[in-house]
Design a protein around this nucleic acid. Structure first.
Length: 673
RNA sequence: GGGCUCGUGGCGCAGUUGGUCUAGCGCGCCUGCCUGUCACGCAGGAGGUCGCGGGUUCAAGUCCCGUCGGGCCCGCCA
C-alpha cells in the first residue's frame, strides 16, 4: 500500500500571529471564500479555531497558483508556505515627519487627521484609533476600528528629506490572524465539495430545517463550533469538580424497567421475552438511589435521559443531566455542592461570574409573586393580590369571581399608558391562551385613572391597586380575576411576555435562585386523589411527617429546584430512606400492595436492608449551555437534535424495520405504512 | 389531542381584489477579464411551474378542502 503525502499540519488556522512571520508552516482547512484577482488568489482557510488568509501568487509558486484556480467554497485543502506580515498597499500620501510623535503617543492632531480626509473622504478617521509600533521610530500600523481600515505608516527618506509615507493597509482588523497571511508554495486539494446550501458563517438567515438537514455543514459555522466547545468545557468542568468533591462517576443501565408514573417511556422490545419491553430511563432515579444503598456514598453521571413527551423550545425527547446523589446528606449539603458546581461550570466554561450562595424562595411565594415556580427575576413587574380591596367594588366580573373562591391579581406595565386598543386586544388574546376569560386594565395618567371600567371602582380602590403594583403615571395596570391557578398562569406569562416586549430584561445578567418548600402532594380534582408533586421517592420535612396520616395536602417536601433567568436548570430532593415512610406515601397515593410489589418490589426490599439517608439533584446540561450561550432554543446546543415531531432530520429516524426484525420480536404493527 | 403560523430557483424574500406571472429581486452558482482583496470589482450566463393531492373558475402561486413537512404554544412533561 502506498502512503500518501503528509497531512501533518504545524498550526491550526486560528493560531498564527505576527510573531510567526518568516516561519514555514502547514495548515489544513476548508475554503471559506476565494477571491481571484487574476494574478493573485486569496483564500480564507477555515478550521474550528479560526481563519487564515492564504495567498496564491504565481511569483511564489506557479503550480499552486494554477491549482488554486479550481478551488471552490468548502474544498478541503492542505497548504504549506511562509508566514508573512501583510504588506503595505498603495501609497496614499506623504506627511511631515513631525507627526511621528503623535503616532508614538497615539493621540492624533486634527491637522494630521485632515490629511487623511483630504486624501479621500472615505479615509476620514474615526475616534476609535489604535496605533501599533512595528519598528521603533520607523514603521507603524494605524487601525481605525470603527471604519475597519488599517494604514501602514513608514518613516521614509524622500530626496534627502525625512517624510512619513501613509499607505493603504492590508491588515484585516476583524481577524485574529489579520496581521499575517500565508504565502503558499505547496497546495494539495484533499477533497472537492458541492456548493453548500448556505454559507458557512455566523448570523446566517436560513430556515432551521435546512440547517438541520445539512447539520454537518451547519456545525462548521464558528458559533456552532463555539457551542460544541462550550458544552465540552461544561461537561469537563462538571467532571473535574465532582471528582474533586469525592463523587464517583458510575454508569447505570440504558435498558431498564418501565415505570408508569410521570412521563411516557421510550420502549424497546425484548427479543428473548416476547411481549415484554425495556424502557429507556426518564432519569436514572432508582439506580442512583440503589447506588446509595450500595454504599457508593457519592455518585454522579453525565446521563442521557428520555421522555416521550411533546417537545418545546427548551425540551427534547432525549436530553442530558448531570445526575448527582449523595449519602448522609440533607438539603443544605446538596445545595452547597450544586452551588459550587454551577459556579465552576459558568465561570470555567462560560466565563460568567457567579455569586454564591443563591437566594432561596419558597414555592408559594414564587407562585404568589411571579405566577410560576421558575421566575425570571431579572425584572420586576411582580404580581400583587388585590382581592381584598376589590371585594366590595361594583365590577361584577371581580366580585362574582371572588364570591366563588376566586382571586383578583394585578401587574403594572411601565409605559403601558401608551398602549393602543389593539395592543391591549392582543394581550387579551395572549392571556386567553392560559384560559383567562378576560384582561381588565386601567391606565394611570397624570390626570388620574383612565379606562372603561374606572366607574366601577372608588378612587381609593384604584389608588390601593396602584400603590401595590407600584404603577406610576404613564403605566398601565392589568387585572385578571379567576381561579388562583389560572390567575397565576395568565399573569405570570403576561409578565414574561411584557418583560420581553418592553425590553425590561438585562440579557447580561444571570439570576440564580432556589425554589424550596414545595408541597409533597398535589390534589387531583378530576380523579379526587393525590398525586406526587414530583416523584414517589421525594422525602418530606420532619415537622410535617405526621401529616402524612392526617393531612397529606399540607406535607412539605424536601424538594428543591434551581432556577436561572426563567429556566428550571436543576431539580432534586432529599429522598425517603425509610421503608415505613415510603409505605405511607404509597398509601396516600392509593397504590395497592400488589402494585407496589410488582413495580417497586426490589426497591422497597432494598430500602429495608440499611439504606443511608440520601439526597440528590440533577442539573440539566442542555439548558445550562443554552443559558451560557444566550440561546432560546435547546436545539442550538445539541449537535444532532430531533425535530418537534421527534424525527432526526439527518438520519430520518425513526424508521420502518424489516418484517423479519418484527417477527423476531413478536411484534405486529397496526398502522398504515 | 388542540390552537396559531410558515412552505415560490441552492439560500433569503416579493408576487395587490384570481387575468402581460411568458413568475420578479438580492445573495449564491457558472464563464470570461482583473496582482492586494478580505461582503473584491467588472461583463455575460444558467437555474424555479410556486410542498403534495383534489376542487371552484373561461383563467389559480393567488380562492376552497385535504394531506405532508418545519416552527411557536396549550394540554402533556414525576
Amino acid at each position: 500500500m502506498s502512503q500518501g503525502p503528509s497531512l501533518k499540519r504545524t498550526h491550526y488556522c486560528g493560531d498564527l500571529r505576527l510573531a510567526d512571520r518568516g516561519t514555514q508552516v502547514s495548515l489544513n482547512g476548508w475554503v471559506k471564500r476565494r477571491r481571484d484577482h487574476g494574478g493573485v488568489i486569496f483564500v480564507d482557510l477555515r478550521d474550528r479555531t479560526g481563519i487564515t488568509q492564504v495567498v496564491f501568487d504565481p511569483q511564489i509558486d506557479e503550480k499552486s497558483h494554477a491549482i488554486a484556480d479550481a478551488v471552490r467554497s468548502e474544498y478541503v485543502l492542505h497548504v504549506s508556505g511562509t508566514v508573512r506580515e501583510r504588506e503595505p498597499g498603495e501609497l496614499l500620501f506623504h506627511a511631515d515627519a513631525a507627526y511621528q510623535t503623535e503616532l508614538t503617543d497615539g493621540n492624533l492632531s486634527s491637522a494630521f487627521r485632515t490629511l487623511f480626509s483630504d486624501a479621500d473622504p472615505k479615509y476620514a478617521l474615526s475616534d476609535d484609533i489604535e496605533v501599533a509600533t512595528r519598528e521603533l521610530g520607523a514603521r507603524w500600523l494605524l487601525t481605525d476600528l470603527e471604519n475597519n481600515r488599517t494604514y501602514h505608516i513608514a518613516n521614509e527618506d524622500i530626496d534627502g528629506e525625512n517624510r512619513l509615507g501613509i499607505y493603504q493597509g492590508t491588515v484585516n482588523p476583524e481577524l485574529d490572524t489579520g496581521e499575517i497571511e500565508l504565502a503558499v508554495d505547496v497546495l494539495r486539494i484533499l477533497n472537492t465539495a458541492k456548493t453548500p446550501p448556505f454559507p458557512v458563517e455566523d448570523e446566517i438567515d436560513v430556515a432551521e430545517d435546512i440547517r438541520m438537514r445539512y447539520r454537518f455543514i451547519d456545525l462548521r459555522r464558528p458559533e456552532m463550533q463555539e457551542t460544541l466547545a462550550m458544552r465540552h468545557k461544561a461537561a469537563l468542568a462538571a467532571r473535574n469538580y465532582m471528582n474533586e468533591q469525592g463523587f464517583l462517576e458510575i454508569e447505570t443501565p440504558i435498558l431498564m424497567n418501565s415505570t408508569p408514573e410521570g412521563a411516557r417511556d421510550v420502549l424497546v422490545p425484548s427479543r428473548h421475552y416476547p411481549g415484554r419491553f425495556y424502557a429507556l430511563p426518564q432519569s436514572p432515579q432508582q439506580f442512583k438511589q440503589i447506588l446509595m444503598m450500595s454504599g457508593v456514598d457519592r455518585y454522579f453521571q453525565i446521563a442521557r435521559c428520555f421522555r416521550d413527551e411533546d417537545t418545546r423550545a427548551d425540551r427534547q425527547l432525549e436530553f442530558t443531566q448531570l445526575d448527582i446523589e449523595m449519602s448522609f446528606a440533607g438539603v443544605d449539603d446538596v445545595l452547597d455542592v450544586t452551588e459550587g458546581l454551577m459556579k465552576r461550570i459558568f465561570e470555567e466554561a462560560g466565563n460568567i461570574p457567579v455569586e454564591i450562595p443563591f437566594l432561596r424562595l419558597p414555592y408559594h411565594e414564587s407562585i404568589a409573586r411571579f405566577g410560576n415556580d421558575k421566575p425570571d427575576t431579572r425584572f420586576g413587574m411582580e404580581l400583587t393580590d388585590v382581592s381584598d380591596v376589590m371585594a366590595d367594588c361594583d365590577f361584577q366580573v371581580f366580585t362574582r369571581t371572588l364570591e366563588t373562591g376566586g382571586q383578583v391579581k394585578a401587574i403594572a406595565a411601565p409605559g403601558g399608558a401608551d398602549f393602543s386598543r389593539k395592543d391591549i386586544d392582543d394581550l387579551t388574546k395572549f392571556v386567553a391562551i392560559y384560559r383567562a376569560k378576560g384582561l381588565a386594565w386601567v391606565k394611570v395618567t397624570a390626570d388620574g385613572f383612565s379606562s372603561g371600567i374606572v366607574k366601577f371602582f372608588t378612587t381609593e380602590q384604584l389608588e390601593t391597586a396602584q400603590a401595590r403594583t407600584g404603577a406610576k403615571p404613564g403605566d398601565i395596570m392589568f387585572f385578571v380575576a379567576d381561579k388562583p391557578n389560572i390567575v397565576a398562569d395568565a399573569l405570570g406569562n403576561l409578565r414574561l411576555h411584557l418583560g420581553k416586549q418592553l425590553n425590561l430584561i438585562d440579557e447580561t445578567q444571570y439570576n440564580f435562585l432556589w425554589i424550596v418548600d414545595y408541597p409533597l402532594f398535589e390534589w387531583k380534582e378530576e380523579e379526587s386523589r393525590y398525586e406526587p408533586f414530583h416523584h414517589l421517592f421525594t422525602g418530606c420535612t420532619e415537622e410535617t411527617l405526621p401529616l402524612l396520616d392526617t393531612d397529606p395536602g399540607n406535607v412539605q417536601s424536601q424538594h428543591y429546584d434551581l432556577v436561572c433567568n426563567g429556566y428550571e436548570i436543576c431539580s432534586g430532593s432529599v429522598r425517603i430512606h425509610q421503608w415505613d415512610v415510603q409505605q405511607k406515601v404509597f398509601d396516600v397515593l392509593e397504590i395497592t400492595p400488589e402494585d407496589v410489589e410488582n413495580r417497586f418490589g426490589y426497591f422497597i426490599d432494598a430500602l429495608a436492608y440499611g439504606t443511608p439517608p440520601h439526597a440528590g439533584i440533577a442539573p440539566g446540561l442542555d439548558r445550562i449551555v443554552m443559558l451560557m450561550r444566550n440561546e432560546e432554543n435547546i436545539r442550538e446546543v445539541i449537535a444532532f437534535p430531533k425535530s418537534q415531531q421527534g424525527l432526526c432530520p439527518l438520519t430520518h429516524a425513526p424508521s420502518v424495520v424489516a418484517d423479519e426484525q418484527l417477527e423476531e420480536l413478536s411484534i405486529r404493527v397496526d398502522a398504515d405504512l
